[in-house]
C-alpha cells in the first residue's frame, strides 16, 4: 500500500505574482489523480510544489502544508533532497541525461543512494520492465539514452523515476510531447502503475484525464475550482466554470 498526500492551504508565488491560491486537496493512495485546467492555471506549479522543486527558481516562494503520510514537507528542518528521493517525477519533455547510457540513466537515482552493483542491475531491470521498455532496450543498455525515440526516452525517464521505488509519482504532462501511439503506451502504464504507486498527473488533455484518472481536480487562475471522482467531474460538474471548460467553451 502506497502513501497518500494531503495538501492544505497551499499558495505559491513567483516574485510578487501569486500563481497558486489556498489549495486544499487530498490525494488518495493507489489512485490516479489528474490535474486539469487551461494553460497558465498553475497546474504545473502545483505538482512542482509537491516535491519542493518550485523553490529552486529564484524568487519563488510557497506557503501552506503538504503532508506525505504524517510528515509536512514544508515543516522546518525537512530536507528537500530526501523528499525528492521519495517522490518521483516525470517531466513534460523527455529529459534523459545525454552523457549517460540507457543503463546509467535508469541507475542514476540508485547511484545517488549508493546501491551496490548486483542490486543495481536487478533494480534497473525491474524498473525498465515496469516502464515497459526492457524488451526494446535490453540488448543495448550501453547506448546513449539520447538515441532512443521520444516515446522511449519518456519511458526511460519513467524508469529512472521508478528505480528508486518512490511512494508518489508526479507526472507533468508526460505525453504532451509524444505521438498518439507512444501516448497510449504511457496511459496504459499509468493504469498499471497505480497498483503500487500514488500517481498525480497533470494534463491539458481532458480525454486523457477521463481515461486514466480516478480523481480529477480542475484548476483555474491558480485556484482549485472543483475536485471529485473523474466520472462525476466529466459528467456532472458542480461548478459552472468546470462545465464551461470541459465542454470546450474556453481554454
Amino acid at each position: 500500500m502506497a502513501q497518500g498526500m494531503e495538501i492544505r492551504n497551499l499558495s505559491a508565488w513567483y516574485g510578487s505574482q501569486q500563481v497558486l491560491k489556498e489549495i486544499n486537496l487530498p490525494v488518495s493512495p493507489n489512485q490516479v489523480t489528474a490535474i486539469i485546467g487551461p494553460s497558465g492555471c498553475g497546474k504545473s506549479t502545483f505538482v512542482r510544489t509537491l516535491n519542493r522543486l518550485h523553490e529552486i527558481i529564484p524568487g519563488a516562494r510557497v506557503s501552506g502544508q503538504v503532508f506525505l503520510g504524517e510528515v509536512d514537507l514544508y515543516a522546518p528542518g525537512v530536507d528537500p533532497v530526501s523528499i525528492r528521493r521519495r517522490i518521483g517525477m516525470v517531466f513534460q519533455k523527455p529529459n534523459p541525461f545525454p552523457t549517460m547510457s540507457i543503463f546509467e540513466n535508469a541507475a542514476a537515482g540508485l547511484r545517488l543512494n549508493g546501491v551496490d552493483k548486483r542490486r543495481l542491475a536487478e533494480q534497473v531491470e525491474k524498473s525498465l520492465k515496469l516502464a515497459a521498455l526492457w524488451d526494446e532496450v535490453s540488448n543495448r543498455l550501453g547506448q546513449s539514452g539520447a538515441a532512443l525515440s521520444g516515446g522511449q526516452q519518456q519511458r526511460l525517464c519513467l524508469a529512472r523515476a521508478l528505480a528508486v521505488s518512490p511512494e508518489i509519482l508526479l507526472m507533468d504532462e508526460p505525453a504532451s510531447a509524444l505521438d498518439p501511439a507512444a501516448t497510449l503506451k504511457i496511459e496504459d502504464l499509468i493504469r498499471e502503475l497505480k497498483k503500487e504507486y500514488t500517481i498525480i498527473v497533470v494534463t491539458h488533455n481532458m480525454q486523457q484525464a477521463a481515461r486514466v484518472a480516478d480523481q480529477t481536480a480542475f484548476f483555474l487562475n491558480g485556484e482549485l475550482v472543483e475536485y471529485g471522482p473523474s466520472s462525476e467531474i466529466f459528467t456532472r460538474p458542480k461548478d459552472r466554470r468546470t462545465e464551461d471548460y470541459i465542454t470546450g467553451r474556453f481554454g
Binding site: P76, S82, I83
Partner: peptide, 16 residues
C-alpha cells in the same frame, strides 16, 4: 528493496 531516507534531518548532510 526500498530506500526510505528519513525526511527530517535538520542540518542534513545534503545541505552541508
Amino acid at each position: 528493496m526500498t530506500i526510505r531516507p528519513n525526511l527530517i534531518r535538520p542540518q542534513s548532510s545534503h545541505q552541508w
